[in-house]
Design a binder for these strands. Sequence first.
DNA 1: GGAAGAAGCCTCACGTTGTAAGGTGAACGA
DNA 2: TCGTTCACCTTACAACGTGAGGCTTCTTCC
Lengths: 234, 234
Amino acid sequence: MGPRAAETRTRTPLTRERVLQAASDLADRDGLEALTMRALADSLGVEAMSIYYHLPNKDAILDGVVELTFAEVATEAQGQGAGGSPADAAGWAAAVRERILGARRVLLRHPWAPVVIDQRKSFSPAMVRHVDGIVGIMREAGMSHDLIHHSLHAIGNRIYGYVQELSDDGQAPPPGQLEQMQSFAPNLAAMLAEVAHVDPESTLGWCDDQVEFEFGLDLLLEGIERRRVTEAAA
Amino acid sequence: MGPRAAETRTRTPLTRERVLQAASDLADRDGLEALTMRALADSLGVEAMSIYYHLPNKDAILDGVVELTFAEVATEAQGQGAGGSPADAAGWAAAVRERILGARRVLLRHPWAPVVIDQRKSFSPAMVRHVDGIVGIMREAGMSHDLIHHSLHAIGNRIYGYVQELSDDGQAPPPGQLEQMQSFAPNLAAMLAEVAHVDPESTLGWCDDQVEFEFGLDLLLEGIERRRVTEAAA
DNA sequence: GGAAGAAGCCTCACGTTGTAAGGTGAACGA
DNA sequence: TCGTTCACCTTACAACGTGAGGCTTCTTCC
């Protein structure tokens, strides 16, 4: 039998994985700024310096939780239509769209992740694999590497650099502020006044992030599709 | 005469503006992480706590430098064709494009600015004015507030959330890494292998950020233009 | 001219951060 | 039984933002 049989009362031992999972949970619960070495250790019932036995430093922890997040993206992706390949010339955009929205679904559960991703270089293998899948779909649709490359850049910011954008709280700004804005930003003020109350049933205050996200994504995908057709005709 | 005439030998006095300018310079020179209260004070020939007489705290400084950056954007914009309004139904996209590229030119001189902008809420008046100008152009082209609103979201990330993206150093990754990637990200590796050596005369290593940026921007602008035509036809 | 007070800068100190250095006790191979 | 190694802990330090309050120097009013 393993050494676990003789175990008496020690707490479950620290591992790299347990630390990273706890870090992710802590950031989910209390936000990225609450992810300190001492708080993390505390949530594991351990002293801060004990963590350094399993991870070299905090940067490694940040890299680790990003990796962990993209592992989640991968399982999310294979949960969907992983069977056939609907990525022919016609359907590539739908397939890419689905992958990206899937990644977004995961990132919405870990709002700190995009922040961490673009604060550091952070090219984790799982993230690379995710991008690779998208390249594969576009490649199957017959797109050139050059077009794919540009498209990745165009789309890239949108996924990984995705941030909460305006109005986290989902409520209108302090009432006085809008009419004050009217004086020096009249166009913007007019727009906000009209748009603000259009669809109160949307998920979040005046700007439904999901709607906005898909609007931008579709603009890009449509544009890329037209470039693909042009390229294929040549 | 003013009190300046009687001045003997004191150093030039601290002001809010001088502090903010020094902060911007320091971040330009040594990076955002080097912008600490003590280092900032040092660059002003002063002790850290003296700054607090002119600014309430570090957040105010960060807000201030963003404001200062967008003031630069404003002067850059009025340097260009501020005379007539070429923002009719046909030319709105070109006008918006020019504004955004102008903002980008400034932000490239202050690479820390986008980071600061989306770390905090940071809706500085100058930034609001900049957005307002874009709304005005689109409005003149007859677009609905709804379409403008969505378009702002689509474009927004691209400007303010703009980050350096991959390969800051502008060089290819460590040579071994690419063929290692080949095993678990073959599509990506293939693309990189082909794209990497295409245009060595471009400004920065393998990914010319300016080209990529304009590619994405044009995709969005074209898509928005088609939505505008559809909307105008209704 | 002299007193009062404000303006502007400084010293000191505290709590929090990441982490280097090294200690301690249990498990284990010789 | 005796190191050695593993896993965790204690102590300590430099750097961070900043609260409390002190010391000049200038302005203002009598």
